[in-house]
């Protein structure tokens, strides 16, 4: 079970990253729990200043950009 946390205050790019992450996880067929974190205080506690960002099992893997599904799959395996 992987915990996928998409950090973002609700901008268009954040939604896109969440969608791509979900698609990547489904394609890999892994068990996952995707959470969108919109609370700025929590986002900042990850050390992230540029949204969107993605944390996998609590570790920040992507900052400030939207990766496509293929790139995300590599981060999730």
């Amino acid at each position: 079970m992987k915990t996928l946390q998409v950090l973002g205050t609700g901008c268009a790019k954040c939604t896109k990253l969440a969608e791509n992450t979900e698609a990547a996880a489904k394609e890999l067929g892994i068990e996952y729990n995707l959470v969108k974190i919109t609370d700025l205080t929590v986002i900042m506690s990850f050390g992230v200043m540029m949204t969107p960002a993605l944390a996998v099992d609590g570790t920040v893997k992507v900052v400030g950009k939207v990766l496509d599904v293929a790139e995300l799959k590599k981060l999730l395996v």
Binding site: L40, T41, S45, F46, V48, V60, K65
Partner: peptide, 29 residues
């Protein structure tokens, strides 16, 4: 006031070495 209460986490951010191919990709993006 709430701003000063925020703690910027000092967790390691991904610092992957970026290749030139990726930089070109970034430019195209």
């Amino acid at each position: 006031g709430w701003v000063t209460a925020v703690q910027l986490g000092d967790a390691e951010l991904p610092t992957e070495t970026v290749s030139w191919a990726q930089r070109f990709h970034y430019g195209a993006e």
